[in-house]
Amino acid sequence: MTEDARAAEVSIGAADPDAAPGAVLEARRVSKWFGEVIAVNGSSLTVGPGVTGLLGLNGAGKTTLFKLLAGLIEPSQGEVLVYGRRLRREVGLFRRIGFCPESEAMPDWLTGREFIALMLRLMGTPAPQIGPRADAILARLHLADAAHRRIGGYSKGMRQKVKMAQALAHDPDIVFLDEPLNGMDPVSRHEIIALVSELGRAGKTILVSSHILPEIETMTRNIVLIHHGKVLAEGDITEIRDLIRDRPTIVAFTSSDPRRLAAFLAGQELVVGVELDDRGRVVARTDHAVGFYRALPAWLLAEGLPVEEIETLDDSLQAVFDYLVGD
């Protein structure tokens, strides 16, 4: 379906004039509470096309934020914009959203294909298209063999895939995937990660949550970190790491002459500490990582210092996560 056809299908309302340019999803000081329990607390964020990882501890408010952004629940305060418009006012926008929930509940009595067809019908897909689309998405997720079996008999990994299939079947522009890899075996994980990355490259907006940080890292560098219901950080992992000023960046060097390298680095102003670790590496700490990296190649060449490997130890997503969430 072309973009024009889609625009005709969706009733056109006036976009919010203040909407952030280029943003697909935008939350403005959104809060949501259930009774006295606050799940999301005054969070603002914008999400553009591509894959964005949503991270947080259990109970941080990830699932609630997903539901708010997808328009499944109303914020108690603040507002959510999709393409600069309010979802609740323009029901047509829902057709452009796919949602894969974390919950395990599924209609066990239906076959995989019946379930997808039902979801397509609910999304208003024209009847002749339902069959081919359902078959296509099931084949895409390697479920074609199981399409005519009841969901009740599926393994956990297959159930996850069917949940994903129903989120993708109507070819939405915005996809929410809440812990999609939960319970899958490594082969399925690899397939789904590849699929998500591919959809992201194709210009879809994908918000995906997972507890397995290395897997998020292979899908995207772009993250939103939520803690105690508040958005703590959003953006590129590396940029976020550079903004954490109170923790010096730790860089390890493998060298054939570690003592001379250590002595040299200790003399540099950008370096706040140098030590040798138990594997014979020189470990330097710097408060100004960017400047340090820039100066590094020239230093090493000028001094004739042999370096085999350079490794930044604490800029992984796990390290960034730990620093921001605290211990």
Binding site: T238, Y293, A298, E309, I310, D315
Partner: peptide
């Protein structure tokens, strides 16, 4: 020739490396 080649290239065009590993 190892890492020296890479470091030289980095120094020559001002490319900064966070990570250079086998």
């Amino acid at each position: 020739r190892g890492a020296a080649v890479i470091l030289e290239a980095g120094a020559a065009c001002g490319y900064a490396m966070r990570r250079m590993r086998r």
